Amino acid sequence: MVTAQDLPLWWKAVLVEPDYSRDFLLMALFTGMRRGELMKLRWENVNLETRTLYLPKTKNGDPLMLPMSNFLTDLLKERHARATSLDWVFPGPGKTGHMVETKKFLLRVSAGSGVSFTLHDLRRTFITIAESLDVPYYALKRLLNHRTNSDVTGGYIVVDAERLRGPVQRVADRILELVGEYS
């Protein structure tokens, strides 16, 4: 996990990265999405008007609709304006057409910040910040796309993108506060 204390150093190292790696890492931090979900994100599943991301296929097989914070919406609007691919948010040179490798830029950011981390650590950081803001348990589970069907109560609760919009914005605001970009 990237701790609150380490986040400013990590942020500074990320901001000097090329836009493809910078934006990828910031999206990972601001959404808690899994590596593969980010790599395979298509522009057709990004709705800048409704400020939502749609993941038709996730690790657990369930689709997921996530709201975007103001910060993430702005980042994706800028990214879309300079997009070189109409298909992939994070295009790559290989057969798949999307980014497949992150090791080099993870190593650069780790070296530049002195913070050793993995992409999964950014998922942990996102959800830890959300939990510290007292985001409700079932909203936390939905943000990570963890199933609640083993919990009888969870089966009754509908947590949609609009219900998650407030928590997502609060997490983004807290991240920006921790890195000194927002007060």
Rank of each mutant, 00 (worst) to 15 (best):
D121A: 13
G61A: 03
T128A: 03
D151Q: 10
L29I: 08
R174E: 15
Y156M: 05
P8N: 07
R170G: 08
A111K: 13
D121N: 13
Y20L: 14
R124K: 12
T31G: 12
A111R: 15
L143N: 00
K59T: 10
S116Q: 12
V135C: 07
M68V: 07
K59G: 09
E131T: 01
L55E: 05
D23N: 13
M68S: 12
F105V: 02
G61F: 08
T148Q: 04
T102C: 07
Y156P: 03
L15H: 10
G154F: 13
V171N: 07
A111S: 12
R79K: 15
R165S: 11
E78L: 12
E177V: 07
R174P: 11
S183P: 14
L176I: 13
E78V: 06
E49A: 08
G154H: 10
L133N: 07
P67I: 04
R51Q: 15
G32Y: 03
R170D: 12
A130G: 06
V16K: 13
N145P: 06
F30I: 01
P63D: 02
M99K: 11
E44Y: 07
L178S: 13
G155P: 11
I175Q: 02
T118Q: 00
P18Y: 14
T125P: 06
F24D: 07
R35D: 10
T73L: 08
T3V: 14
K12G: 12
L66M: 06
G114W: 01
E131Y: 00
T58K: 10
T96K: 09
A81K: 09
A139L: 11
R79D: 10
L41S: 10
G155F: 09
A28G: 03
W11Q: 08
Y182N: 12
H98Q: 03
P56R: 05
L55N: 04
S113V: 06
S150G: 09
M65K: 14
D6Q: 13
I157C: 06
D6R: 11
T102E: 05
A111P: 05
R34N: 15
L38C: 07
G155T: 13
M33R: 01
K12C: 15
R170W: 14
T148W: 02
P56D: 00
D121W: 08
E78T: 06
T128V: 01
V152F: 11
D173S: 09
P91F: 01
H98T: 01
A13H: 05
R35Q: 07
M1N: 13
